[in-house]
Every structure is written in structure tokens, then in C-alpha cells.
Amino acid sequence: MPLLRVLHVPVACCALESLAAASALAELGVELADGLGESDPASADVMVVSGTVTHAMAATLREVHARLPDGARVVAFGACASTGGPYWDSPTVVQGIQSLFPVDRFVPGCPPRPHALVEALTDLFDDTVGRR
């Protein structure tokens, strides 16, 4: 059984980097599940939103978030998920996912390096994966 279950929501280019962290995360006992696929959000400990979120997509993301168990954490991976990033003046882009639900960690970078996800998760879960 994994130490930590991550519901990974890949919505744009940042996802290439967060997915590249999968093997390093697996070594730490962290499992990445596809948040837009078949996996059940109810079994996740943390949701990682990776990429640009458009207003058209916001409702889907809110639905996925609503199905997370109580106490699940949220990580915004990259500039777009954190603030809208390079699309700071776009009327179609959500200016940071904290406008949709509470966020626990904002990872800077456009995109951040894969290792930034490992660091954000070990920091956020310093009592479990961070100990390893």
C-alpha cells in the first residue's frame, strides 16, 4: 500500500514535469493516480493540479475536489495553477486555483522542475513521506 496517494490532475504543459517525478515519488512510496481518468478521488490524500485551468474547466475541477475525502490537501503545481501565470491577462484563464478551493502549497516555476513536486510533497507531508 502506498504511503501517500496523489490525485494528479494534468491540465497543461506543467503536467509533463510533474509526471516526470512519478518514479522518484514511487521510491518514496507516493502513488500518482490520474485525476481525469478512472481513479477515485475519495482515496486520495492530496490533489495536485498541474497546468493552466480555464473557466470552462473550473466546474470539473470543483467536482473532483468535492469528491476528495475530508482533510485532503491541495497543491498548485506551477505558475498557471498558482496565479494564472503567463495568462495573467487572459479572460478565459482562472487566476489561480485558490479561487476555486483552498490550496496548501504553491509551487513556483513555468514549469517547475519535476523535483519541485517531490520537495513540495515531502514538505507538506513531513510526518510521513518527508521522514523517508
Binding site: 502549497r105 504553491f106 519541485a116
Partner: peptide, 30 residues
């Protein structure tokens, strides 16, 4: 840094070398 795309344009254009890169990435924040 929440918006910065790490393009390096600012470092390139500064006529006084007042901006520079450091290797260690900035950490995630709450």
C-alpha cells in the same frame, strides 16, 4: 515568482548586471 516564467529576459536586458540566476529553485509556499 508565482507569475514568473523563468524566461531570463530580465537578466539578459539589465544593463547593469543587477539581476542574476542562482541554481537552487525557490521553494513551494503556503
Amino acid at each position: 515568482m508565482g507569475h514568473c516564467q523563468h524566461c531570463g529576459i530580465c537578466v539578459e536586458v539589465c544593463p547593469f548586471d543587477a539581476l542574476a540566476w542562482v541554481a537552487q529553485a525557490a521553494p513551494a509556499e503556503a
